[in-house]
Design a protein around this nucleic acid. Structure first.
Length: 191
DNA sequence: TAAGTGATCTCT
DNA sequence: GAGATCACTTAA
């Protein structure tokens, strides 16, 4: 049986008292690709009006370092992307295509620009649809991923076998050239 | 396959 | 301020 079917968000609600393990900054303060792969199978928890919803992560993309041509940080620090240059475990939410909010979480050490784009959770695929479904806007930009923020990451207890995670090139970044767009920086839980 | 939408950034 | 661009979605 697939782990995906063994523990669903609804069941997590009942198990939280003994299982809650919010991912701390130290989890994100590691190499971006490592964090990205380990995020698969973790919970993304969104709390609004006292109601929390946990969604299991199924798809993420890494944007790693100043040399990553597909990264917002490649052209240097700007007001928008400054948070990528800061400490790990901070939310980076930006608006694009005139209609979509994109949710990212920063990784790696201070001054090293990197973040992970949250592309999908169980039942929702596509980064724009995800933020719309969970009510994520730029109000959350620059805030730490923590309970006080209303958005955080949590260990689920699910162990995703490495062979269940497919690595592919990143989506929509062909402008960065084949070297960077084809790098296997996208992690997808192949259920 | 292309329209839609608006913030962001790079020029003037 | 103008113009180009954009880590996307949807309808066709």
């Amino acid at each position: 049986m697939q782990p995906l079917l063994m523990l669903r968000p609804a069941q997590h609600e009942g198990a939280r008292v003994t299982m809650r393990r919010i991912l701390k900054r130290a989890f994100f303060d590691r190499p971006t690709l490592v964090v990205a792969e380990e995020l698969i199978g973790k919970f993304l928890v969104r709390e609004r009006d006292g109601v929390s919803r946990a969604s299991m992560l199924t798809e993420v993309e890494a944007y790693d370092g100043p040399k990553d041509k597909a990264s917002h940080a490649f052209w240097g620090r700007t007001p928008r992307n400054a948070v990528m240059f800061g400490p790990a475990g901070v939310l980076y939410v930006y608006f694009t295509y005139g209609m979509h909010h994109m949710l990212n979480v920063t990784t790696g050490p201070e001054a090293y620009p990197a973040a992970i784009l949250i592309r999908g959770v169980e039942g929702i695929s596509g980064p724009g649809r995800l933020t719309k479904a969970l009510g994520i806007t730029r109000d959350l930009d620059r805030l730490p991923a923590a309970k006080a923020t209303g958005l955080w990451f949590e260990d689920s207890g699910v162990v995703v076998p490495p062979r269940a995670i497919r690595r592919t090139g990143r989506i929509g970044v062909s402008y960065a050239g084949p070297l960077w767009s084809k790098r296997r920086y996208r992690f997808v839980w192949k259920a």
